[in-house]
Simulated scan of single mutants.
Amino acid sequence: MFCITMMIRNYYEVHGTFDGIQDTILHDRIEEMRKGTGLSYDDFLYTQLGYQKVNEGHLSKLSIQELTEARALFITRQSKALAQKLGIPEEGSFNSIFKDAGIPILSFKIKQEKLEDRYADIINLLAFYYKNDTNLYCIVNKRPLPLFYSLEVLCSKSTNIRKTIDALMEDKEVVRSLAKIRCRKDSKLLIQGKYCITPNNYTNEEKDMIQRKALEIACFPYTVNLNKLFKVSQNLPFLSFNDNAKYLKMLDFAKGIGSTYQEIANTYGINLPDQLPVFNKYGILLFKLTKDESYFIDAQCDAKNRPYKQGNQMFS
């Protein structure tokens, strides 16, 4: 049933909800698995993600589905809505409530920050360039790595965003990988070679600020350090069984900001497609991570036998 569980997870990762799953090929298998559990249809589906009912404390009155909603509010620090949902004063000790329920108390303060018009375009262009251009390389531990991957590795070493950016701007190899900002009055804003051409004449202090902010957006697109949950983006496709507690936190965060796991993965350069068409036709889930690296899950896979690497080599 591992294959069905992974399909249930994929459905939720793509849609951010289980609405409509009863109209898919999965429905009969879900009912077969649910039989004898005593759980409602929705609560059973959430257990397949890894959520469990809380039996004591403030959270015990919630269904598993309601618990996921409370967790989403908690991880994104939406205190007023959470207090209302739990029926407690807003100044209540949320940390102790979740800690007593055995739920990790990690949470993130989402910053709403608007870039100044003079800098917004160039910062966003550089951030996109640093995050997505596969021709950019950086030396990390004497190894040449794609810049976007290097940034993920380096960002996983600290949980403090400001200190992380300080460290990146002091790293000679990172700085060497960045585009040089050049003013050309008769040009539009563009990347050309290793240069960022702009019609604006920025001071050295402004250039430093632009580079710092571009790195911050490239590394932390949601203004918080999610890297502590998955370390590097290549872990996202299989995080659900490699570290289910952190996977649930990712689902909580996605729900809390009104997004989906798929959308967050895509922001970090990972494509998590809807597996239902492939499953309908072949009875498998297929994950193509890179041009030369693919994995699949079939009926032979279980909690111990993980996805197969293309060519029948076991994934570890």
Score class of each variant (00 low, 15 high):
residue 116 E to G: 10
residue 227 N to D: 07
residue 290 T to A: 15
residue 41 Y to P: 01
residue 96 S to V: 12
residue 169 M to Q: 11
residue 78 Q to N: 12
residue 231 K to F: 11
residue 213 K to E: 13
residue 198 T to I: 04
residue 187 S to P: 00
residue 254 A to M: 09
residue 44 F to K: 05
residue 286 L to K: 12
residue 239 L to F: 00
residue 68 T to K: 05
residue 119 Y to C: 04
residue 286 L to T: 06
residue 164 T to E: 03
residue 58 H to Y: 12
residue 260 T to S: 13
residue 16 G to Q: 11
residue 255 K to S: 10
residue 147 L to S: 07
residue 213 K to P: 00
residue 216 E to K: 15
residue 13 E to V: 01
residue 280 N to C: 12
residue 179 A to T: 05
residue 160 N to T: 08
residue 29 R to H: 15
residue 181 I to A: 01
residue 110 I to Y: 06
residue 38 G to H: 11
residue 69 E to N: 10
residue 249 K to D: 00
residue 40 S to K: 12
residue 9 R to I: 13
residue 23 D to T: 07
residue 253 F to S: 02
residue 150 S to N: 08
residue 101 A to W: 02
residue 39 L to Q: 03
residue 249 K to W: 05
residue 316 S to Q: 13
residue 243 D to L: 01
residue 146 P to R: 14
residue 232 V to T: 14
residue 7 M to G: 03
residue 203 T to H: 07
residue 127 A to H: 04
residue 271 N to M: 10
residue 225 N to G: 07
residue 94 F to R: 02
residue 125 L to Q: 08
residue 308 Y to P: 00
residue 162 R to G: 07
residue 295 Y to G: 05
residue 95 N to I: 13
residue 158 S to R: 13
residue 223 T to R: 13
residue 28 D to Q: 14
residue 43 D to R: 04
residue 166 D to P: 02
residue 253 F to A: 03
residue 256 G to A: 08
residue 293 E to Q: 12
residue 255 K to F: 00
residue 32 E to T: 11
residue 246 K to F: 04
residue 315 F to Q: 02
residue 297 I to R: 05
residue 81 A to Y: 03
residue 251 L to I: 14
residue 149 Y to T: 04
residue 158 S to P: 00
residue 283 G to E: 12
residue 67 L to D: 01
residue 171 D to Y: 08
residue 274 D to A: 08
residue 35 K to P: 00
residue 80 K to N: 08
residue 167 A to M: 12
residue 271 N to C: 11
residue 78 Q to I: 03
residue 192 Q to I: 05
residue 259 S to I: 07
